[in-house]
């Protein structure tokens, strides 16, 4: 017997669904199944008004096993990570954590991800930090850098290669 979503001809992917729920548990979160669709998350979602993110619908689709639809959607990248959905959920479900799981899946499947993340990962690999020291402008329109302000040197990994190797190793693993 099968269940098919006739709008997309998608079928529930129970294996990926189990994988996401197992991941949620290992990260100390509640599984999605308890969601009863009160949509308190969407009522208070910071990204909803501007970008139409509907956290309750994300959870509903996960409960239905329609993972591909979610992983391939751009909407999962609109979350502002304010965590109000997780904080106020009466069933302790955490839509934000489900979104992290879906985004991780999208990355692992080689899907194109927003440029910011690629750039940040590159910077972490080479430097250990998401960006290097910036020159900034003061209110009086002069420019200044960290050392000119008398601040001590930046704390960052000194053996960059060793650090890079560790990060590269993990980058191909999953939670």
């Amino acid at each position: 017997m099968t269940i098919v979503d006739l709008t997309s001809m998608g079928e529930p992917q129970t294996e990926q669904q189990r994988e996401i729920n197992a991941r949620l548990v290992s990260l100390q979160n509640e599984i999605s199944s308890y969601c009863y669709q009160c949509a308190k998350c969407t009522s208070g979602c910071e990204a909803h008004k501007l970008l139409e993110l509907e956290p309750h619908k994300i959870v509903a689709l996960l409960k239905r096993g329609l993972i591909n639809e979610l992983v391939n959607s751009d909407i999962i990248w609109t979350c502002m990570t304010c965590m109000k959905c997780r904080e106020r959920c009466p069933q302790r479900v955490a839509p934000i954590e489900i979104l992290f799981a879906l985004k991780n899946m999208a990355v692992a499947s080689g899907k194109q991800i927003p440029g910011k993340y690629t750039a940040m990962l590159q910077s972490i690999l080479s430097l250990g930090l998401i960006q290097d020291i910036q020159q900034i402008t003061t209110r009086m329109n002069t420019t200044v850098k960290r050392d000119e302000l008398g601040l001590p040197p930046l704390s960052k990994p000194t053996d960059a290669q060793k650090f890079q190797a560790a990060v590269m190793k993990i980058a191909t693993e999953k939670v």
Binding site: V107, Y117, L121, I124, G128, I130, K156, P157, T158, V175
Partner: peptide, 23 residues
């Protein structure tokens, strides 16, 4: 001041949460 610190991992949560935990 402690040397050797790196990124906290939070920006990498969307990419790979294992990496962010590691960091």
């Amino acid at each position: 001041d402690v040397p050797e610190f790196s990124c906290c991992g939070e920006p990498m949560k969307s990419v790979n949460q294992l990496l962010s935990l590691y960091l």
